[in-house]
């Protein structure tokens, strides 16, 4: 007899709201049901169900050939995932905290990202895991890793900000024939404000398409991940307190970058603020600024500004981390500066 679907994975079926973490679990579960070539590898994902319990009860349901607890060796099992992908499987690798992806940097950038170009065929695999600060995790449980990979042609990078997007983007990532780095902000995992009832259907959110979270006419904020919510908060304050209309664009996919959505919004508002939780130097704001300079220089009525984390390792103590991270008030101040410009 087939095991029954675990109760906690039936919330959408029961039309109950789910957290972003539950949405991710549902995406993985449904994709593994849909396609038996999809399998999971990672540290403590089987018996324990993952450090954040994303794969709770998966081992019982799918068995140890499809939910593989690995040695603590991110390079080794990510490389093994690449080998399995060559043979027609579709691995989803969990990095317990994305800070620990660095041992796999070699195989991801040298092997996986170059595979299709080298004629070794596509690498349909997903490397996913928790990122981001605000949880007092310190230097090794808080990083954002997107820009370590943004410079590598051949990879896609996805970073959802809502439960709905997380589920649809993860499904799209698993079905994509290219390697995808999928970042999940741990501060959003169980955020009560993000609980929502998801469509009870097999939907995907296409990679490479930004979303207008909030329409506006005076300033564009381009952002992603947890900063979407702080940006929206600031935009609402601008609306009510300053009478300034702020458009917020959620990139959702960082690579490939939805340049058209950014340029279109800037051509409408003529002012651009980029907000990211990642550190400042070499952050995505730089790439966005040059693209706008190339494509929409004539439309700009002010400097392109950015609000980011400071250029430092992620500090542990609350007071330090709060200072390190970009806050709603920073977004507000930058938006007000632009509005007055």
């Amino acid at each position: 007899m087939d095991p029954e679907t675990p109760e906690h994975l039936l919330k959408t079926k029961r039309r109950e709201p789910v957290t972003m973490l539950e949405a991710i679990s549902e995406a993985l579960f449904e994709e593994m049901i849909r396609d038996e070539s999809v399998f999971l590898m990672g540290e403590d994902i089987g018996v324990y169900g993952g450090a954040f319990k994303v794969t709770r009860d998966f081992l019982t349901f799918f068995g140890e050939n499809r939910v593989i607890d690995t040695p603590i060796a991110e390079g080794g099992f990510t490389g093994a995932a690449a080998g399995a992908a060559h043979m027609g499987l579709r691995p989803v690798v969990e990095i317990q905290f994305m800070d620990f992806i660095s041992p796999a940097y070699d195989v991801i950038t040298n092997y996986i990202a170059t595979s299709n170009y080298r004629g070794a065929g596509p690498q349909p695999l997903v490397i996913r895991g928790p990122v981001g600060g605000g949880n007092r995790g310190g230097p090794f449980h808080s990083q954002n890793v997107e820009m370590a990979f943004f410079h590598t042609p051949g990879l896609k990078i996805v970073y959802p900000s809502t439960a709905r997007d997380a589920k649809g983007l993860l499904k799209a990532s698993i079905r994509d024939d290219n390697p995808v780095i999928f970042e999940e902000h741990k501060g959003l995992y169980r955020a009560p404000s993000l609980r929502e009832v998801l469509p009870d259907e097999d939907y995907i959110v296409p990679l490479g398409e930004a979303r207008i979270v909030r329409e506006g006419t005076d300033i564009t904020i381009v952002t992603y991940g947890a900063m979407v919510h702080k940006s929206v908060e600031a935009a609402e304050m601008m609306e009510t307190e300053d009478g300034v209309s702020v458009e917020v664009v959620d990139l959702r996919t960082l690579l490939p970058l939805d340049e058209d959505a950014i340029v279109e919004s800037v051509k409408k508002t003529n002012k651009l603020l980029v907000v990211h939780e990642d550190t400042r130097t070499g952050g995505i704001a730089g790439e966005i600024a040059i693209r706008v300079s190339e494509k929409a220089f004539e439309w700009l009525d002010g400097p392109i500004l950015r609000v980011t984390a400071i250029d430092a390792p992620v500090p542990y103590s609350g007071s330090l981390e709060d200072y390190f991270l970009p806050q709603t008030d920073d977004v507000l101040k930058a938006a007000r500066y632009l509005a007055a410009y």
Binding site: G76, T78, A81, A84, L89, D106, N110, Y111, R118, G121
Partner: peptide
């Protein structure tokens, strides 16, 4: 170079990587 039908996978220059790749192939 590569031919998965004939059954060979060419190496990349950091050769140690190929142990990982073959581990995954044979895992499958």
């Amino acid at each position: 170079w590569f031919d998965f039908e004939k059954g060979f996978v060419g190496p990349v220059s950091p050769l140690g990587t190929m142990i990982e790749i073959m581990a995954g192939m044979t895992l499958s």
